[in-house]
């Protein structure tokens, strides 16, 4: 199923990537090329086949309910969390004003 330029722009908007008309035009061909190729998957008879969940047999482990047990996954490290922020403000991350 071929996609058109409007669809390319819609996807770009969903993905929050600004694109120009020229970029959208170029991408239309590339994406159709790739999507056309992956569509051969439709040939495969998958009746009765479950989608892959765990590639290697393994079950989900659960963590104990302990605060800051490991500093690498615990809180209380505001400086580290904010260290690379483009616009730190009084302990917050600053962003352009949002209207809800």
């Amino acid at each position: 199923m071929a996609i058109d330029q409007a669809t390319v722009k819609k996807i770009a908007s969903l993905a929050r990537i600004a694109i120009s008309d020229a970029e959208a035009a170029a991408m239309e061909g590339e994406l159709n090329n790739i999507l056309g190729w992956v569509e051969q998957l439709g040939e495969v008879d998958v009746s009765g086949v479950e989608p892959m969940t765990a590639v290697i047999p393994n079950t989900l482990r659960l963590r104990d309910d302990i605060v800051d047990a490991d500093p690498l996954t615990g809180g209380n490290r505001r400086d580290d969390v904010l260290a690379n922020a483009p616009e730190p403000q009084h302990g917050f991350f600053g962003v352009p004003k949002v209207i809800e």
Binding site: R63, I66, V67, D68, D70, G74, G75, R78, D80, V81
Partner: peptide
Amino acid sequence: SNAKLFSGAATAFGAEPNTQVSLVD
């Protein structure tokens, strides 16, 4: 719960901003 759903940061109400935030959060 004491800690968050997917990290070890605390859940208590009313803390200073961004203090109960792990690298994961």
